[in-house]
Design a protein around this nucleic acid. Sequence first.
DNA 1: TAAAATTTTTAGATTAGTCTAAAATTATTA
DNA 2: TAATAATTTTAGACTAATCTAAAAATTTTA
Lengths: 216, 216
Amino acid sequence: MNTFTEENYLKAIYHLSLQSESVSTNQIAAALNTKAASVTDMLKKLADKELINYAKYQGVTLTPSGEKIAISIIRKHRLWEYFLVEKLNFKWDEVHDVAEELEHISSKELIDRLDNFMGNPRYDPHGDPIPDSNGLFKTHELKPVSALTTNEKGIISGVRDHSSAFLQYLERMQLTIGKTIKVAEINDYDHSVILLVEDKKIHISREVANNLLISI
Amino acid sequence: MNTFTEENYLKAIYHLSLQSESVSTNQIAAALNTKAASVTDMLKKLADKELINYAKYQGVTLTPSGEKIAISIIRKHRLWEYFLVEKLNFKWDEVHDVAEELEHISSKELIDRLDNFMGNPRYDPHGDPIPDSNGLFKTHELKPVSALTTNEKGIISGVRDHSSAFLQYLERMQLTIGKTIKVAEINDYDHSVILLVEDKKIHISREVANNLLISI
DNA sequence: TAAAATTTTTAGATTAGTCTAAAATTATTA
DNA sequence: TAATAATTTTAGACTAATCTAAAAATTTTA
Ligand SMILES: [Mn+2]
Ligand SMILES: [Mn+2]
Ligand SMILES: [Mn+2]
Ligand SMILES: [Mn+2]
């Protein structure tokens, strides 16, 4: 139907659209580790297929059919990640690259059966919501730990940085999805935060506080 | 490491090698639904990578490293088929095409974990042996039902034809892997066979008898 | 064993995706 | 608002995989 590459472009545009409405050529090039010239070529092709709205120099948005494809790729990515962690005992920092391959397996029947096999999970191992078979899901609004003030509480529910380095760090600090945290103290000088997690004090930097997401 | 296409060529050469020692350009072209000229181009590339032994006009054989890759693809194919049937409840005639995609997922860690998750099955849903993590497996020698004489018994253990049409036919006739059969009668004229399966008589044509494999 | 048939390879194109370098457009800023 | 900077597109080239048509090699057959 669509090539591997087209799917990756659509997915990248989808993710970038969450930040900035219209998406620029350079943003896409950066996200896909490719060059602006290559992106322009692909944008023409995707526009021909009516998967994106594209006017030269003006940036792009997804059309409804482009968005549908992007969401189906994301559904597959997140369900496979869930499978890898819950059934095959991978760690949450080990699954992304494998899921990048698995997300391109085309069978819808396969992914719907996999979804049922696992009991229709709603969130992937990193707290990201999994679209259902019809592409529906609610983007739960999470805020970073850095948005809390002293004595406020939250439940760790997602991450802004999906890198192995960050995930491994969180794992070591026992800052994993589902844990309840309370802000014990905020350092005025460097904005680092001392959290109370299961009665233990955990000191995290401002950067970590920015990338760790909570619900209330 | 290698492209999908290279992997498909190696796998095709491996399967054809089981029949004919050295494999011809046209055999490969037929197996992969492509043209002889395309095959020649690819053979040069595989030879450059030392995955096949190739001398112009002389046909090809796999090198040890080529064979190792082919077997790893077959391992993945058969394990995924097992997963689809045993865990996701696909029918045995529905899994081949999906496995054709899944077999190219590169992670060895993934496939080894999947293997363990399923309890290290030795045969896929069609009775074909699954290579272990080191690529080892014994090619069990099966013979077709048509090789039996009257009153001989056997256990259905494999198929020579993997087409959906044939598999669905067997399913309808309840001629599935593991069943014990006994030859009740062989028709001299058309070589059709009457089998006794669980005390029921099942009449199959010579063609079916040729494509249904048994162990003793 | 020489002609005919078949198989295989080469030659030359095509398509998808990528690149660098240069040109065109848009945005910034002085 | 005109020059400068940054972004984006175009032009032209490259690689991988494919094709058709023609040439070369091998095999068959008479
Ligand atoms: Mn991921
Ligand atoms: Mn994830
Ligand atoms: Mn198969
Ligand atoms: Mn099989």
